[in-house]
Design a protein around this nucleic acid. Structure first.
Lengths: 178, 178
DNA sequence: CACGCGATGACACCAAGTGCAATCCGGCCG
DNA sequence: CGGCCGGATTGCACTTGGTGTCATCGCGTG
């Protein structure tokens, strides 16, 4: 991170990273498949955390609410990394390479969530849309949270979900229940 | 395309592409910034087409419906490329590199649409969610259309939109109008 | 102490890009 | 007709990400 923030992502070379870590270029690639991947180390763990929360806490909730809750819970575990998260997000925003990687991680997350929803009994197509929507909600709520770390992630998530609902409009053929 | 489909994306080298086109590696990079980009040549034109349709045909429609209609109209212009589109999609599915590029193109499309919506008077946050949702709808409808080129894109889009609406549930505080 | 195994390192190598300068080619002007 | 010009093409050298292979190191175990 130190190297990246002072030199810019593209300028920093793998050799430099390896040197800084007291290792070799080759060893770097034994730990990370990519240069990009070094900034997404936690992604897999986060995905698993979300899936776990999703499998646990879906009692009586709409799929979309369950998905949002699962993302919120998993997201709260990131609360400690505030400063790092901000720097990382800024770095990602500065490089299309990193944005691409970020997007595919989010897509992977959505897929994993969709699969988890299927296991709960949600039909596949609904599961896909639900997961995708939930991840969209998370992405913007997370961005909000980055710019204001003091805010409550849960509230931000609910606000984003409400905004999304307002944006896509009403589903056909039912009157409001709940 | 011929090279890619017979050899697989990763195996084909820029030199081979250039040879096949009767050009040089260097010249290839004068036309395309990337190896990936050669498969996304039409993306910018598509994006502009969508924005144009969106600016024109938003009379009296909800933003989300306007966005979906714009994507549908622009999508219909792709009807001629059926076989190519299928091969391309298959290729993208086979390579994470290409998936990443595809995702960022879709994100760029969503951004452009959001901006266009803002110009129409939709508040920014709503515009972002609307555009994102519409692109999601398009992505799955397009995938459906790829697997069944005989189908009607318009119908597929409407079905996807309905599915998405069902997935995200009802917006708060209004009873169904329309 | 010998052995084995996982992590590290050295080295050679390939392909994607990039910068720069030379060259080609078609049109245009005197 | 001949020279000139600007854009497209090219050759070439170079950097860097990434991989395959094999040697080596360090360490815990029998």
């Amino acid at each position: 991170m130190a190297l990246f923030t002072e030199g810019g992502y593209a300028e920093v070379t793998i050799a430099q990273i390896a040197d800084r870590a007291g290792l070799t270029k080759r060893t770097f690639f034994n730990h990370f498949t990519d240069k990009r991947e070094v900034l997404f180390a936690g992604a897999k763990a986060f995905e698993e955390s979300v899936v776990k929360h999703l499998a646990e806490a879906h009692d009586g909730l709409d799929p979309i609410d369950a998905a949002v809750v699962a993302l919120t819970r998993a997201g709260l575990a990131l609360a400690g990394y505030g400063e790092f998260a901000r720097a990382r997000q800024e770095l990602i925003a500065s490089s299309t390479e990193l944005q691409e990687r970020d997007l595919i991680k989010m897509t992977s997350l959505a897929s994993a969530m969709a699969e988890a929803l299927c296991r709960i009994g949600v039909p596949p197509r609904t599961a896909t849309f639900t997961a995708q929507a939930a991840v969209t909600v998370f992405t913007t709520a997370y961005a909000d949270w980055i710019t204001d770390p003091g805010a409550d992630l849960d509230a931000l998530m609910q606000r984003s979900l409400a905004d999304l609902r307002r944006a896509v409009g009403h589903p056909p053929g039912h009157s409001d229940r709940n």
